[in-house]
Structure formats: structure tokens, C-alpha cells
Write a protein that binds this DNA or RNA. Structure first.
Length: 263
DNA sequence: ATGGTTGACCCTCAA
């Protein structure tokens, strides 16, 4: 089974590219982030025409996550237990959705952007990650054999080699010790980054800013990850980042991350 | 000059 994750930066602007990607790579399940649309605006038809079922949550033009699958889509859960909200009044954002696809719970995650080290959004981000860790830990406590994939845009570069310049990011979001500790806490809860071993750095990235010619200059960040429970991690036989998808007109600023599982 | 791009609820905000 082949699963993947991709921050598409608007599903309506990118639908042709996304469906072409599914076909080209023969992907069974795709976790999508930043659909940037409401549920009624999601382009279901192109996916259904290719044999995929769609589960999506989107409240407005911000955020929005989905799971599309051609190997079953059961027990869809919007958000996760304890997921913090944002705003006035506080409300849940469309940043997490999961479904069981052929026995594997695929979780599509769009971790809040902390914006700045002293920004209120950073407090929200760290709280959100702490609660995600608790929920993820709970799934594993409940069933140590659970097959769960936490896939998405984490907005964290866990290691120095995951950014093109530590000097550039030192006073910015994504590399700060609290963010890295929040990511590590998920690993400590029993999850493994199943992509890094197959895509070693340095210089291996999943995101390149649209501005400043970051992509041609190879100045990116590795911030999109697939974390797996032990029972799922042992099934991983290959993983890759499809850098080709960052090329050309109409590219998202993120590249898709692909994981191959043994039957 | 310093966000040089992209996308969304036209337009400022978010990334």
C-alpha cells in the first residue's frame, strides 16, 4: 500500500496537479493539508472519477485538511480529543482529520504556524502539539499494535540540517527549542519518523518559500513528516519526497512525501 | 525598496 501527504496550498487551484500526482505515483491514500476551502467547495468529482473516496473538513478559506483513499475510508474523525481551538470566541480550526484506510489510521495534520517566537500563535501551536501528543499517546496505550500514521505539515524543522540556514531561522519560528521539544515529545510517545531514514539530509527539504527564488537556490526546509506507530513502522519499505512537484507553473510551495508499506 | 510569490470571501491577511 502506498500512502502520501501533501500540503497543496489550495485544492481548487491545484486539483489537476493533485489527481495527476495520484495517478503518476499510483497512490492509495493521500493526506492533504491547506485545502483552503469549505466542505461544499471541495472538488469531489475529479477524485471520485479516479476511484477515491474523500473525507474533508474546512470552515473557511484558511486551513482545511482531507484524506482521500481508494482502499476504504472508515471511522472518519474530525480533529482529535482535546484539540485546542483559536479565536474569539474560541473555535476548533480545520487542522486535523483522520480515517481508517485498509486497517491503518491515516491522520492528516496541519500544525498551526507559530508566526513568531513571541507571538500568541506560538503559544497556540505549542499547546496544540502537546494535546496532539496526548491523543496520539492515547491511541497507542489503548492498542499497542495500532497502525497509525501522523502525516502532514508540522511547521517544525526538528534538526539543524532541516533548514537551509540556521543563522537565517535563529530568531524565527520552526527551529526554536520549545517547538523541537514538542515534536520530540510525539516521538517519545512511541512514534517514528519513517521517511528520514530513506531520505537522508543535509539538503533534503519538503518546503521552499515562493519568494526569494528559494527553490532554484535549494533553500528549503524539511517540515512535512510521516510519523508511525511501531506496528506500522515495521511495514515501511521505502519513502521519498517528490521534489519534481515543486517545479513549474502552478506548484504548491510544499512537495509531497510518499511512504510505501509492505502488504 | 526589501515578502522578489501565491492564494483566499476584492484585498488584506496568511504563509
Amino acid at each position: 500500500m502506498r500512502i502520501a501527504t501533501w500540503n497543496v496550498n489550495s485544492i481548487r487551484a491545484r486539483v489537476d496537479r493533485v489527481t495527476a500526482f495520484l495517478e503518476r505515483h499510483d497512490v492509495d491514500v493521500l493526506a492533504i493539508q491547506e485545502t483552503k476551502c469549505r466542505d461544499d467547495q471541495f472538488p469531489h468529482l475529479p477524485f471520485e472519477a479516479l476511484g477515491y473516496e474523500v473525507a474533508h473538513v474546512g470552515h473557511n478559506q484558511w486551513n482545511g485538511v482531507a484524506v482521500v483513499s481508494r482502499v476504504g475510508l472508515e471511522d472518519v474523525q474530525v480533529g482529535f480529543a482535546g484539540m485546542p481551538g483559536w479565536g474569539e470566541p474560541v473555535a476548533a480550526e480545520a487542522r486535523a482529520l483522520s480515517a481508517v484506510c485498509r486497517g491503518v489510521r491515516i491522520v492528516s495534520l496541519y500544525v498551526p504556524n507559530g508566526r513568531g517566537l513571541d507571538d500568541p500563535h506560538m503559544v497556540y501551536k505549542l499547546d496544540w502539539l502537546a494535546r496532539l501528543r496526548d491523543a496520539a499517546h492515547g491511541w497507542l496505550e489503548e492498542d499497542p499494535q495500532a497502525q497509525v500514521a501522523l502525516m502532514g505539515d508540522w511547521n517544525i524543522a526538528p534538526q539543524d540540517e532541516d533548514v537551509w540556514s540556521m543563522e537565517y531561522y535563529l530568531d524565527k519560528s520552526h527551529v526554536s527549542p520549545p517547538e523541537r521539544a514538542a515534536f520530540q515529545a510525539v516521538l517519545d510517545a512511541g512514534y517514528t519518523d519513517v521517511v528520514r531514514p530513506h531520505t537522508p539530509g543535509p539538503g533534503t527539504y519538503t518546503y521552499w518559500d515562493y519568494t526569494q527564488l528559494r527553490f532554484p537556490k535549494r533553500q528549503g526546509m524539511r517540515i512535512d513528516f510521516a510519523l508511525a506507530t511501531p506496528a506500522l513502522a515495521e511495514r515501511v519499505e521505502h519513502a521519498e519526497i517528490d521534489r519534481e512537484e515543486r517545479k513549474g507553473k502552478g506548484a504548491s510551495d510544499h512537495a509531497p512525501v510518499i511512504v510505501d508499506l509492505r502488504a
